[in-house]
Design a protein around this nucleic acid. Sequence first.
DNA 1: CACTCGGATTGAAACGTGTCAATGACTGGC
DNA 2: GCCAGTCATTGACACGTTTCAATCCGAGTG
Lengths: 349, 349
Amino acid sequence: MSTRSRSARRAVGITEVARHAGVSPGTVSNVLNRPERVAEATRLRVEAAIAELDYVRNSSGSSLRSGRSESVGLLVLDVTNPFFTEVARGVEDEAAASGLAVVLLNSAEARQRQRRNVRLLAEQRAAGAVVMPVDDDLSDLLWLSRQGTSWVALDRGDVAEDVGCSVSVDNHEGGRAAGRHLIGLGHERVTFLTGPFAIEQVRRRHEGLRAAFEEAGLDPEGAVRVVEQPLLNPEQGERAVDAVLAGGPRQRPQAVFCANDQLALGLMKGLGQRGLRVPEDVSVVGYDNLDFADLVHPGLTTVAQPKYELGREAMRLLDSELNDPQHVHERVLFTPELVVRGSTAVYRA
Amino acid sequence: MSTRSRSARRAVGITEVARHAGVSPGTVSNVLNRPERVAEATRLRVEAAIAELDYVRNSSGSSLRSGRSESVGLLVLDVTNPFFTEVARGVEDEAAASGLAVVLLNSAEARQRQRRNVRLLAEQRAAGAVVMPVDDDLSDLLWLSRQGTSWVALDRGDVAEDVGCSVSVDNHEGGRAAGRHLIGLGHERVTFLTGPFAIEQVRRRHEGLRAAFEEAGLDPEGAVRVVEQPLLNPEQGERAVDAVLAGGPRQRPQAVFCANDQLALGLMKGLGQRGLRVPEDVSVVGYDNLDFADLVHPGLTTVAQPKYELGREAMRLLDSELNDPQHVHERVLFTPELVVRGSTAVYRA
DNA sequence: CACTCGGATTGAAACGTGTCAATGACTGGC
DNA sequence: GCCAGTCATTGACACGTTTCAATCCGAGTG
């Protein structure tokens, strides 16, 4: 408790601790990393010295020497999106259990930024990464593998098993479930409101929707119309309302299946402004089951994804890849679940 | 393009690049860090070698040597909360402009986890940090200062200027604005629905609300009732509806001011289930202006905070603290703004 | 008592980078 | 043609840690 408070910032290292405890630096390192190899008495002495000097380990030094750091990266498409943040929670909880630190990096949906973040991970010699790729181009990830950093792809089912692990949710099945629900309610003219088809996930949801119609003996060509917007946010949903309603009351869809909840919520707002009631005039189905889907009125019928579990499983796979010498790449596929609320109802002409 | 693809992972360092370019390691380091000091011709030669060998810098080495890393930490209370993620975007954009990497760490509202994250930053010798403290106890931050890592506190206006910078939004003013709005609409009996009063921010919003009543010549003691819930999430808002309505129609509040939007949205759902209409039967005001405030029906009147700007300013301050030798701690205070939507209306008995 | 064996501890050698004083090369002025 | 002066480059060292072969000690065995 000396008073040399602010100036003369010291650099207590492992060596100073060693001197203070009357022991060699190697022993201090052992206390830190393999306590079982050091005798009880000396261990206590070293620990006392650590506490007294307020030593904090310098991770630069250790990861320089060992060639690997203790942290894993989580590359997320958009920190602002509730879907991703829920996944992040899962990853974090599981990582904490394995004693790994998570650094969360935001790609902001931009290829260039993803590349920068991947590079950052390589520079930090990160132990591994959980990644949601911005697009179909996996070259960044392959490069990362070559640098010796392993990864797990999230929500990207088409990653071949010989390049890496992946965990995702069956988008085809999700679209199909939504379709069956609507068909069961008697809807035979539905619009798929979506973001860019360049996104694999929405493409597959669309296919699933069409499959449901085929299975019901209906022609998807006539039954399913598509409205494509440039982004998957609420504003675009609101803006799409004219396109959705185009063609007048006769052509108007009986139901709208939206590629995510944000579009759906925007659309519902837009419909309300046009004086159309949900579900009386048109049914709406979303995708993701965000917290807010339950807060609007009427509650949004939507396809729920196990977001938190998705994150946990990804981290679990990464952990196995890091520690299990006979790990083989795996492809985990979750099944989504339809949550029925008030925004869908039986069709009445 | 040899075929020795996967095995024999190399360790191309600065020295190998140097050898390949026929220069000394020092020169390569200069090319990387102070390109202006090296002649054009050699610079090109070195850059070619870097590209050819696919060299990626090892940040462990560099921060070990320089004693400081190139990344700043962002300690957030809850990655899941839209308010914080918007702030995160601001911090990230500004940091990117300064060439700093942001590592996002989640405290999950838990003291213990905040402490672990602060320690992690110290171990990584982070250049600095932007922190939203979990509670009034700033000892973790003071410890971080002593370790030589500087920080900016976010949304915590009571940080003395001699310990560090802070940027926050005037919560008193926000509460006051909400109060004045409600009073102007004729409401004289309002309930403040809130989370724990241990949280400074909600305490100050409450004070602001009361101040508005006093300024209008009304006695806050009689006019403002408080319902306190353990958490600030939608579920708690929904659950609070009974407490809010307690006392029967005569005692029932004419308006409810909620400490954040999530509570407000939950409350609105609960009110709807009880058959009460917003705003006809009761007006509701939120706080934060989340994206979803505009998507519910009726739209939620709320107090908007400049979330993104908050993040940017915090990072800007941190940058100044890191680079400006004559930096002095600063306290920046933003003013919130009331956004009026459909959830509030003139009181009619 | 000599010898072995096992566990605890040591000491020195890396890991890849930044820094800085010293060296080298080259230019222009006299 | 020499010197001063500038600019580019070099080489060696230090940062804090981990690792590993070598050493030390003490107990158990023959």
